[in-house]
Nucleic acid binder design. Structure first.
Lengths: 242, 242
DNA sequence: CGGGCCGTTGAGCGGGCTCAAGACATGTGG
DNA sequence: CCACATGTCTTGAGCCCGCTCAACGGCCCG
């Protein structure tokens, strides 16, 4: 977390503008919001549960997860974030973080003080509206995630996650839809889909044997996209992609 | 959905003001937002998936649920709403509803046109901020809900839901913490905790046999609050109650 | 070459599901 | 008031998906 950096948010601003068109003044204000860029390492915390969040962050590179632990040590991952996602908007406006936000890989993060966000939304209502919508899009993805965990079996859950990840990576320009690198271990995957790592391993294997995917370590290649979509009960509508 | 009604939002406005203090002008603006009150019956839809939401609503009485169905007919309930909850804020700012919003019981609903909400937030940034926070509080509850489904066993899931409901009913003045009416069938309960209705029945029975609760039809009495809290791995922090 | 991770595989168990029937409520019309 | 229908809750019996425990193999990095 060192030098102030102004151009780093450009890609993020573009994305917000694409989902919620903004005026020039609003765009400039968002682009010029004070922020510091930090290089985080794998497993670093961005926000820890019960802390008072002081920053809201934009992920510039790398991957991050949001999660919470249950009393008996179980962990549930709520979302996986990638470049140009605003993470911790949800946490930062509340006085106390209710979940953890942590790097899945090494990466760069732009830290924006919460007061700056607050000031921004009060001076630029349209911008407040746009950021609000940003958190709502996030919530829509999260609802599908919950449906996935609650009402689908292991095969569908994993297939669904693979489809979602493929599309989200592609929309942010981080990989080809049918061939990408999963930035997490099977244990982390299991915490995302609420299964055992062992069962994740077996399920991935069977998806490969049935010809839906092939894989080398964490590199996923989707061989039968339509088949995988069907297995995963996947309907991209909830991603609200243009 | 008939006569305009101005005082009906008073309790809702009070609640927003309590969680996010607002100035007099903002309070008045929110209180005077155009709305129509409708009497809905049990099972009526407020918003249906894939529709374009035209209203955002405040529940004045009765109970409502948000849910989504999976391809094979499974249903996942995401939240249960009660009096003075703003429902459909999350849906209404997006162009297409990604989930269903439906009455669990008969009740009154105040419908606020989405354009009115938009206008309100642009003219009164502090109000926009407050409503945004309202949706974030909702999201915090939802995360715990997902953790519940993903990482706890049947006993804990149901105990947790009973605890959450007890506290939320009490904070909105709808019942005593240890003695209240569950406004839903066991089948609906099962869609909330991602179990089978049969297993819900058995689990409720065993919670009763072990002395945590007693029940008559859908009337729940919590006998051992601390015990139930422990079984449910319940920590009220996520409710962000003052 | 040794020590961590990580992923794979096997064997056995068990929590929650399925299928099916019966017991209770509630409401409706006669 | 009863007869009946419908929806809800309960109980039983058996099975299977996913979990647990445990061992092994591959890979990376010192």
């Amino acid at each position: 977390m060192n030098k102030p950096h102004h151009s780093s948010l450009a890609a993020f601003v573009d994305r917000v503008h694409a989902t919620t068109p903004l005026g020039a003044a609003d765009l400039k204000a968002l682009l010029d919001v004070p922020s510091t860029v930090g290089e985080l390492r794998k497993s670093d915390f961005i926000v820890r549960e019960d802390e008072t969040p002081r920053f809201c962050c934009v992920l510039l590179s790398g991957f991050a997860i949001r999660y919470k632990a249950s009393g008996d040590g179980g962990r549930q991952i709520f979302s996986i974030h990638m470049a140009n996602d605003a993470v911790g908007l949800g946490n930062s406006l509340l006085s106390k973080a209710d979940h953890n936000l942590r790097m899945l890989s090494a990466g760069e993060v732009a830290f924006i003080p919460v007061e700056a966000i607050r000031e921004l939304t009060l001076k630029h209502p349209a911008l407040g509206h746009a950021l609000w919508r940003e958190t709502l899009l996030d919530a829509a993805i999260f609802r599908e995630w919950t449906l996935n965990i609650g009402r689908r079996d292991a095969r569908s859950r994993i297939a669904h996650l693979l489809c979602e990840f493929a599309l989200r990576l592609e929309t942010t320009g981080l990989g080809k839809q049918v061939n990408y690198e999963l930035p997490m271990t099977q244990e982390e995957l299991s915490d995302a889909v609420a299964l055992t790592p062992i069962h994740v391993s077996r399920t991935l294997k069977s998806l490969a044997e049935e010809g839906y995917i092939s894989r080398k370590i964490r590199s996923i290649r989707i061989i039968d996209w339509h088949g995988l979509v069907k297995v995963g009960d996947f309907d991209a509508g909830y991603l609200h992609r243009g």
